[in-house]
């Protein structure tokens, strides 16, 4: 929002990290991104905690929401991974709601979207990558490396196939992290750009009113779009995690 009044649009200023929680936060380099993570975590736990407090046989609205969250992710795990999916349910659940609430919180004005930082999304995707590889090695031992050489490949092509499979396996880290990061960042850049248009065009007088109004309309639409992207990207991240885990457990 620092673009106000200036002639250039500072679309990236919103991603600048600052410390949060006053001098205490500053002394331990606690950023506003981390504050948002805590809010997202509290929302996730609050949904489950408060929702399930009645422990009703016939759930109320809030409990139904908590149960729906639980059952949706459970279904995603069991459908995606198979019978073993229940084992990975807590981690997929945590990933999904951490990302979902992080994304949704980011849509609020003045809030920070921690998933717009490649460092965060890369850490998440590296975590998933390591988890998947460890699961695969524990399930299959050294046999896991046969994953990189699909059956029925003629000997000449084998080195090429191994190389391709290896690259595709490693590129999961990049695709998983960049997809989330780029989506979140792009949306927020667009919002910032059009918000700056409103201010700048509204400032030049009568001629600017119409395009400024148009920018407001666009921005309103973008907010709705952002809500969709926020949920969709969290879903995609969780589903892909499930698919990778499926590969790890079943090797194709």
């Amino acid at each position: 929002m620092s673009a106000e009044g200036s002639s250039s649009i500072d679309a990236l200023g919103q991603f600048k990290l600052t410390t949060a929680l006053g001098p205490i936060g500053a002394s331990v380099n606690f950023t506003q991104a981390n504050l948002m993570m805590i809010v997202a975590s509290v929302l996730t736990l609050g949904l489950l905690w408060l929702g399930m407090r009645p422990r009703a046989m016939v759930p109320g609205r809030f409990q139904a929401a908590a149960e729906l969250a639980y059952e949706t992710i459970m279904k995603m795990c069991v459908d995606g991974i198979g019978h073993e999916g229940k084992k990975f349910f807590p981690i997929v659940f945590t990933l999904f709601f951490f990302i979902l609430f992080g994304n949704l919180l980011g849509v609020f004005p003045y809030f920070f979207t921690f998933n717009s930082h490649i460092a965060i999304t890369l850490s998440l995707s590296l975590f998933v990558f390591v988890l998947v590889t460890v699961v695969a090695l524990r399930e299959h031992g050294l046999h896991f490396f046969s994953y990189f050489l699909p059956k029925g490949i003629p000997g000449v092509l084998a080195p090429l196939m191994v190389a391709i499979e290896l690259i595709s396996y490693l590129s999961r880290i990049i695709s998983l992290s960049v997809r989330l990061f780029a989506n979140m960042m792009a949306g927020h850049v667009m919002l910032e750009v059009f918000a700056s248009f409103i201010v700048m065009l509204g400032g030049i007088g009568l001629l600017g009113y119409f395009p400024a109004g148009l920018s407001l309309v666009v921005n309103t639409g973008l907010i709705g779009f952002e809500l969709l992207v926020a949920s969709l990207q969290a879903y995609v991240f969780a589903v892909l995690t499930c698919i990778y885990l499926h590969d790890a457990v079943h090797l194709h």
Binding site: L17, F30, N34, W49, I91, F114
Partner: peptide, 25 residues
């Protein structure tokens, strides 16, 4: 702050995972 947010983030994520998997879920 770029590094520290990741460290804090990892910490928060682990706590969230433990609370969710051990108690809430």
């Amino acid at each position: 702050l770029l590094k520290s947010q990741v460290v804090w983030g990892a910490l928060i994520f682990i706590v969230l995972y433990l609370l969710a998997s051990k108690i809430a879920l």
